[in-house]
Design a protein around this nucleic acid. Structure first.
Length: 326
DNA sequence: GATATTTGACCAAA
DNA sequence: TTTGGTCAAATATC
């Protein structure tokens, strides 16, 4: 992680780092506060969405992931506050980032070969393995011994064009109505597709970073559409839920009437949230003030945070998450 | 015709 | 020898 190495430089180098240590403590303090606020927000959101089925579940999952992201950051920062990470609940709508080295053997059967490239950089368990912000091309499928489902091999679509070495493996790890997939990521993206698309995404809204936002029309509509139906539905619920949580239920409904298609729905939701005013800056500290009105869910100043978190995708994926949906 | 997916074969690590 | 990862021809789709 870039933050880790950067902070490592900041905090290393002996005892003359009082300024950096102060920054370090400030970061830990803010992360801790963020996690506490997320917990409060989660409680309020769940109360507001009680009885709303999937919306409630999605909101719970999102905020759980946000909370987990704070915990991960606290762990990276070496804070005792991040010591006991919350046990991962089974995800239902978003990828749950888990420790790859710890979890891979049990789910994948025999241990992987110890080639350098074979060490996964990231691992997630998700019902939507195709939406992770990058474009992938399948190049193989293999039945793995002692596993029920075959493993699919994908490489970055820019493998040839730009020599990108990023690959991923997708393997179903549970069946049922909501199958879960274990996704392993190998090598970093060198295609820089995220950076290349950033202006385009920024021109819309930051919520376009949502996994699966239709920034790139698929070349082959049939297969992709079919595979994306469930994920499209998840996105609609996700966007709707988050917009309600962030902007207030009434506001969202007024500003974002039902869209004819999911992409438009996502865009509408994004626009509804993006019109929030700039964060209020605290006069004393010069820092953006985070005022959480848990009654009215006034989280305007949380907008930047939510966009940055991108529901864990900024943390969980190689390159900090990308902008090109599958 | 161009591009993506499927699938059996091949190769290399253990 | 077994197993996992990749290649490449065949096939499918637009």
């Amino acid at each position: 992680m870039q933050a880790q190495s950067r902070l490592g430089v900041m905090s290393g180098g002996g005892g003359s780092m009082s300024a950096s240590e102060g920054e370090h403590e400030a970061v830990i303090r803010e992360l801790t506060r963020g996690r506490q606020l997320t917990a409060r927000l989660r409680a309020e959101a769940l109360r507001a969405l009680r009885g709303q089925g999937q919306a409630e579940a999605t909101a719970a999952l999102i905020l759980q992931e946000v909370s987990r992201a704070f915990t991960v950051c606290l762990n990276i920062m070496g804070s005792p506050a991040g010591a006991p990470p919350p046990p991962p609940e089974m995800p239902t709508g978003l990828g749950a980032v888990v420790d790859a080295a710890a979890a891979a053997p049990s789910l994948l059967g025999p241990p992987r070969r110890s080639r350098e490239d074979s060490i996964p950089r990231q691992q997630t368990v998700t019902p939507s393995p195709h939406y992770d912000g990058y474009q992938w091309r399948k190049y193989g499928q293999k039945r793995i011994t002692n596993t029920r489902y075959p493993r699919c091999y994908y490489r970055c679509s820019f493998h040839r064009e730009r020599g990108c070495r990023a690959t991923k493996q997708v393997q179903q790890c549970s069946g049922g109505d909501q199958p879960q997939y274990l996704v392993l990521y190998f090598n970093d993206h060198t295609c820089d597709t995220a950076a290349a698309r950033e202006p385009e995404a920024a021109a819309t809204t930051r919520l376009d970073l949502l996994p699966g936002a239709a920034l790139l029309a698929p070349r082959r509509g049939g297969l992709l559409d079919e595979r994306g139906v469930q994920e499209e539905h998840e996105r609609q619920v996700l966007v709707s839920s988050l917009a309600r949580v962030l902007g207030g239920q009434h506001q969202f409904h007024q500003q974002a009437p039902p869209a004819p298609d999911a992409a438009a729905a996502a865009t509408s939701a994004a626009v509804a949230v993006s019109v929030e005013p700039a964060p209020v800056v605290d006069a004393a500290s010069g820092m953006p003030r985070i005022d959480v009105d848990v009654v009215g869910l006034d989280v305007m100043d949380y907008d930047d945070v939510a966009g940055e978190l991108c529901f864990g995708y900024s943390y969980g994926l190689p390159g900090g998450g990308g902008l090109l949906p599958f």
